[in-house]
Simulated scan of single mutants.
Amino acid sequence: MVNSVIYATKKGSAEIYAKAFAQKKNYPIYEHKQVLSEDLIDAEKIYYFASVYAGSLLGIEELKKKVPKNSQLTILPVGLSSANDHEKLAEIREGIVKVFPQAKIIHLRGRLNKEQLKLPEKLIIKMISKSSRKKSEQEKLDIEKAIEQVDTTGSVDYLDLAELVNID
C-alpha cells in the first residue's frame, strides 16, 4: 500500500502545498485531471489539496469517481477563509461531506493575486470588497478582509508551509 497526493488548483496555492507535502513525505503526486483510478488502486491514504471557489472545492466530483472505497481520504481545502470564519468553513465542510462523508478535513489558507484573475473574477472581488467596506471591522469575516486587501493592494498571501507538519 502507498499513500498518494492529488491537487486541484486554479491559481497555484493548493499546488504549492501539495508539492511541498508530497516531497516531504516522498509520496507520489498527481494533478487531479491527470490522475487515473488505476494510479490510486493501492493507495492506503490519499491527500487531496484543492482550491476553494465560491464555497465549493475544485474537482471534488471528479475525485469521487477515482478514489477507491477502501482508501482513507484527507481533504485539504485551500482558500482565503481563516479558522475564525466558522460559517464559511461550515459551508465548505458541508459540501465536502456530501461527497465524502468519511473524509478527514483540514483547512489551509492560500494566496490570491489580482493579476492572475480574469475579468469576471475581478468584478466579483470588486463587488465583495465594496459590500464588505459597508460593514464595521468587527462584522467582517477574515475572508472579506482578505478580499478587500486583494482589491486595494493587488494581493494577499497566507501560505504557511509549516501547517503541513500537522498533517498525518
Rank of each mutant, 00 (worst) to 15 (best):
residue 70 N to R: 08
residue 73 L to N: 02
residue 74 T to V: 11
residue 74 T to I: 07
residue 75 I to F: 02
residue 75 I to W: 01
residue 76 L to E: 04
residue 77 P to G: 06
residue 80 L to K: 05
residue 81 S to Q: 10
residue 83 A to F: 03
residue 84 N to A: 08
residue 84 N to C: 05
residue 85 D to G: 02
residue 85 D to Q: 02
residue 87 E to L: 13
residue 87 E to M: 03
residue 89 L to H: 01
residue 89 L to G: 01
residue 91 E to I: 00
residue 91 E to K: 01
residue 94 E to W: 00
residue 95 G to V: 00
residue 97 V to C: 00
residue 97 V to L: 00
residue 98 K to P: 00
residue 99 V to P: 03
residue 100 F to Q: 05
residue 100 F to C: 03
residue 101 P to H: 00
residue 102 Q to M: 07
residue 102 Q to W: 03
residue 107 H to Q: 11
residue 108 L to A: 13
residue 108 L to I: 11
residue 109 R to C: 09
residue 113 N to S: 12
residue 116 Q to G: 12
residue 116 Q to Y: 10
residue 117 L to A: 12
residue 117 L to H: 10
residue 117 L to C: 09
residue 118 K to F: 08
residue 119 L to V: 15
residue 121 E to V: 10
residue 122 K to A: 13
residue 124 I to D: 07
residue 125 I to N: 13
residue 128 I to G: 10
residue 129 S to D: 04
residue 130 K to A: 09
residue 131 S to P: 00
residue 133 R to A: 06
residue 137 E to Q: 14
residue 138 Q to L: 14
residue 139 E to I: 10
residue 139 E to M: 12
residue 141 L to Q: 13
residue 141 L to W: 08
residue 141 L to S: 15
residue 145 K to G: 06
residue 146 A to K: 06
residue 147 I to L: 15
residue 150 V to G: 04
